[in-house]
Structure formats: C-alpha cells, structure tokens
Design a protein around this nucleic acid. Structure first.
Lengths: 238, 238
DNA sequence: CGTTATATTGATAGATATCAATACGGGTGG
DNA sequence: CCACCCGTATTGATATCTATCAATATAACG
C-alpha cells in the first residue's frame, strides 16, 4: 500500500473555529519560538510506539504527518482505543498529571512528530505556551465528555455516524475531501473506540449504506449525505 | 432530612496519593495567597445553580462544603450527569477552552464554594497556580477517559460497583466512613452518570446485595466487601 | 397528613454481543 | 507472477443484557 501520508507543513487548523487552540498555530504566534525551546523531530514507522503507558513523561508531541492511535490498557488486561490523531493534533497531555503517560501511542502509518520536551515547555515558564496548553487540555476534557455522552446514549449506528462526521471534519480541516476517504483503522479499532464489537461496526456500516447515507467498500468510504449522517436516530433519554 | 453537610475546613485531600493536585493544598503552598488574588466565597441552597452551561466563564470554583452535580445538556435535548463533586474538588475547568461553561453545576444539598475569578487566576500570571491547574486538567482528562472505558466495557453491576468504590475512596479522603454512607444522588442521577436507566441501577444494587457485597436501604449504603466490589465481573474484551 | 417524587420488582421487547461460517485482500515466499 | 496464508470483513443464528412499560411500594416534603 503506497503511503498516502497526510503531510502538513501546516494547512488549515484541524480544529475549525478554534484556531487559537492549535499548538502549531500557537507556537507560530509565540514570538516565533522562545529562546531555549527546542523542538525535536522524530520519525515513526507503521506500528512503532511513540510512548508507552506507564513510561515517564518526557515530552508532549505535535503530529506533523501521518496518523497515530492512543490505546489505554486497563488493569484487568482489557484495552481500548482512546483516540485517533492526525497532523496538527497534540499527544501526551494526559501525562502531565502524574508525570507518566497514561496511554500508549502507536503510529497507524509512517508518521512524523515534533517533540516539546517537558522541562523546557514548563520549567522555562513560557507563559503563553502554558496558557495554550491549559486551553488545549480543557478542550480535550470537554471532548472526552462528549464522547462519553455519545457512548452512553446513542445507538451503534448513531455512534458510527458521529465518528464519520467527526472524521469528515478533520479531513476537510487537513485539506482532503470530506466525503471520500480511506479509513486507517480496522473495524476492531473503530469498535474499540466506539465501545462496540467489530461485527457490530460492520453491521452499522451496512445499515448506514442501506439508508443511502454512505457507501463502503472495506476501508474506502464515501459519505453521500453528511447532514443526514448527523441526524441518525438517537436512542435513549437520560 | 437534617443536612448532614460535609464541611471541610480541609481534612485529608480527596485525592489520595495525589495531594499535589488538590487546589486548596496548592493554594496553601502558594506563599499563602498571592497579592491581588481574591477568593470570593459563595453559599448555595439545595437545587441552586452555581453556573449554567453556555454562560460566560467567570471563575473556577473550589467546593468547601456540601456537594454539587454537573449536568451536560446535548443539542437534541437529552442530558447527562457529568460528575459529582464534594469538598476539596474543583469545578469549571472545562470552561477554559471556549470561555464558557460546558456544563451546569447544581448544588445537591446546601453548599459553599470558593470562587477564583478567571482574569485574576490567569491574567496575573501566578505561575505556580497555572501549573497546578494544568495538572488538575490533565488528571480530569484521564478520569473522563477511565470513566469512558468503564461505560463501554463493563456490565451494569460492574459500573455501579466501580462507582461505589470511587465514592468510598472520596468519603475516606474527606474523613468519613468509607463503608457506610448516604447517597445524595437519586437512582436516576446515578444512572445518568453511569449510562444506565434508573431501574437498571436499582436492579444492580439488588444484585450486589444478593452477592453479599453490600447492603442498601434506599440511599443508605453499607459496603460489606470493598475488595470484592473492585472485582465485580467485567463483561467484554475490546 | 396528604401529595408527589423516588424506588422496587416483574414481564417483555429491543439492541448488541457472542459464536460460527464464509469471503476478501494484501503480503510473502516459492 | 502466482499461490498460499493470515489478518480482516461480512453475514447469519442465537444468547445475553439493558431498556421499556407497568404496577406497586416507599420515602420525602409542603
């Protein structure tokens, strides 16, 4: 498979309407690199880990090219995909609280990241940078909560639809077609992220296709009705 | 019902092993109140809102007495309990990202909070304070993620058991009995928090009682087997 | 003390997981 | 270059779990 890596010198922010929360943007605004702040570049091969759950906190990372997933391992051996991350997004913020990474980050394709070594980023008191990171964290917290609401109140098809709409937005933000793209994740990974089994993900795809909301062929997806996907029937009342 | 409010001049941190992440502790360490940082006190009656989703971000709050719940309203009218909060805990951090509160906070009983007005807390650049808030946020993010994992991979009884174990820890942290306490939340609120219907919560209580792990009588709970509660059978493999 | 909110319990329906069989697809080695 | 193989995906039958609907009991509150 030819690596159709999403390189990003830096296209539009992946966070539409929230450009002030993009680290690369923020860094660009910070008097262009405060003195002493070294941005270390690192390349990753497919399946290579950027950091592992439990390792000591060294740095936060900005994705520059490719895509990564973060996986959370529970005490009982179960694991769950915590998130998918593309160019312009930040990894490792969850390590700040306890000085160790709380997830394992793995490249889903060949990728490149920028490392912000932790002591520099915080010890040197780049006031503006820390404020930015605070905002990023706050946003992430809200997102986790929204995802939680999605998982606890919506049907399998709704969840998959919401996932695809989110993906579509991020694709558009990175300059790609928002209706035609190739999934990097397997059904099992998507299911893990959405709290579903892989067979259920497969059936949900089939269901959305039957409703003419999209077309699927393996990992190739074509969204036919983006507005329709946003309104796929929710299920419960809390 | 006589208000058995949990007043906390400030007992042990609610976060066992994480005392450096407690705001009151942190503030005590910050050269005892930096000049210009005004901590405004506010009393709340049962059912009174501290802030509402969508309101402009004014301040973050530290709970000093009583307990609050935060509720998240989705676009489609559904709502979900996002969290329960007792003395020593912080509210409003989710408002940092977009300068508006992302949840509504309501007192579950008469309560008292300390307000840290936003511009002071950040504009005045109390470096140590901001670092503390960053750590708090990071921890919250991890917690949300763990809760998410709980919701997506575990059975109703497991979720309730985990909820009770968490509650137990927080009770102990606040100097109360970790095995004997009165729930402030209704079955519906607990259910909303755990992604379950109120009848299911009721049945889960009954099930745990049948297994001799606890005793329930309405809101009065007695945990008989704390270690046992931590190992209530999980259900799925991700 | 009555009225309303909350909780328990049962019967049933609906959704997703589980188990199983088959099909597809890409990479590797012959 | 093709064949084989293993990881992945689809689809069906069934089991399991939770939601829903409903009736009653209990507790909270004015």
């Amino acid at each position: 498979m030819h690596s159709m890596i999403a390189t990003a010198s830096h296209p539009a922010c992946s966070t539409v309407g929230d450009t002030d929360l993009c680290l690369p943007c923020g860094l660009a605004r910070l008097d262009d690199r405060p003195p002493g702040l070294k941005l270390h570049r690192r390349r990753l091969q497919r399946q290579e880990a950027l950091f592992r759950q439990g390792e000591e906190f060294r740095a936060i990372y900005a994705v520059r090219a490719g895509s990564l997933k973060t996986v959370m391992h529970a005490a009982d051996g179960t694991e769950q995909v915590a998130g998918f991350h593309w160019a312009g997004e930040i990894l490792g913020l969850d390590a700040i609280a306890r000085d160790r990474y709380e997830t394992t980050a793995v490249a889903m394709e060949d990728a490149e990241v920028l490392a912000l070594p932790y002591p520099q980023a915080f010890g040197l008191e780049h006031g503006g940078l820390q404020a930015l990171i605070t905002r990023l964290l706050s946003r992430e917290m809200v997102r986790e909560r929204e995802r939680l609401q999605l998982l606890s109140m919506y049907s399998a098809e709704s969840r998959l639809a919401a996932f695809l709409v989110d993906l579509s937005r991020r694709m558009r933000g990175r300059g790609f077609s928002p209706v035609d793209f190739v999934l990097r994740a397997t059904r099992a990974e998507i299911g893990s992220y959405l709290g579903l089994k892989l067979e259920t993900v497969s059936r949900a795809f089939a269901g959305l296709q039957r409703k003419s909301l999209l077309q699927v062929d393996g990992k190739q997806v074509h969204l036919r009705d983006l507005p329709g996907l946003e309104h796929v029937g929710e299920v419960a009342e809390a």
